[in-house]
Write a protein that binds this DNA or RNA. Structure first.
Lengths: 146, 146
DNA sequence: CTCGGTGCAAATGCTTTGCAATGTC
DNA sequence: GACATTGCAAAGCATTTGCACCGAG
């Protein structure tokens, strides 16, 4: 949503870690913010290139990692070989249902789930940083097709 | 636990799909059943080789996929590039806490979680086949080290 | 001016594939 | 005997790395 606020978070994160503010880093963040839903590094790379921005794949990968550490991007590993990313800024924590037929991803939020996670972590004395619930199966659309 | 019961499941699965009962398939299953906890394809391959069994990596990968479809093995994708497997026979559905420092995996079961999953799937009209909740963070052991 | 960051191409590591040989049915 | 399955090595992909160059601080 608010690009400037996200830029500020990045600026502060870079300052705190004494890392440099390069145009590439802001460009990747800007591109990420424009995308609705999930994407992989390759798609982001081609999107930036075709928008006329000059950047290398290595930098895209590096920067996505950095943005993840800054809390601006979430990284997921579903069933495939590719890592999938998603902007984390202005989005509440949520989980995913992945359709094995069409690959569609349905997001959902559930407060009870948050509570359970906290309970389990307390019980096992585990310090949670992030979490992902992935439900694999068949979506309504695909079931109707048969 | 009961190797013979697992073998029977495989036999029935193969018959149902008109697939062949090869020694390799039973050997992979047997090796899988002996392992406590998670493993990757490479580790299983070397384990079998060093036990004197002659098999190729390709067959290990193929057979792990087959065993997954038969419901005898679960396949996970945590944060890394490698797929991790685990025997599914005689083990109830469970979820994972992954320590980002030491890589340890803590398993847990929570019945409330099952109910939430069912609720969410009903709500979105989604047909669940499998699911995995992964909680990333730091385990008690690693926090004490600091 | 220094050294962190970038770009490029090559390397890496997991997984899949093509094809001839094998052994199940 | 037919043909699914195996083994092997090579190919495929996503991601990382090494190193020369560049540019932020």
């Amino acid at each position: 949503m608010d690009t400037q606020a996200a830029f500020d978070i990045l600026t502060n994160y870079l300052k705190a870690g004494k890392q440099r503010a390069t145009p590439e880093r802001y460009a990747v963040l800007e591109a990420v913010l424009q995308i609705q839903g999930h994407f992989d590094a390759e798609a982001l790379y081609y999107r930036m290139i075709s928008n006329g921005f000059k950047i290398s794949k290595a930098t895209v990968y590096n920067t996505l990692d950095l943005l993840q550490n800054a809390g601006l991007v979430s990284k997921y590993r579903f069933a495939e070989n590719t890592s999938r990313y998603e902007k984390a800024f202005g989005k509440p924590n949520h989980h995913h249902m992945i359709c094995l037929q069409c690959g569609d991803i349905i997001e959902f939020i559930n407060e009870k789930l948050e509570r359970i996670q906290n309970d389990v972590c307390t019980e096992k004395d585990f310090n949670m940083q992030s979490s992902t619930l992935q439900i694999f199966g068949t979506c309504a659309k695909c079931r109707k097709k048969r």
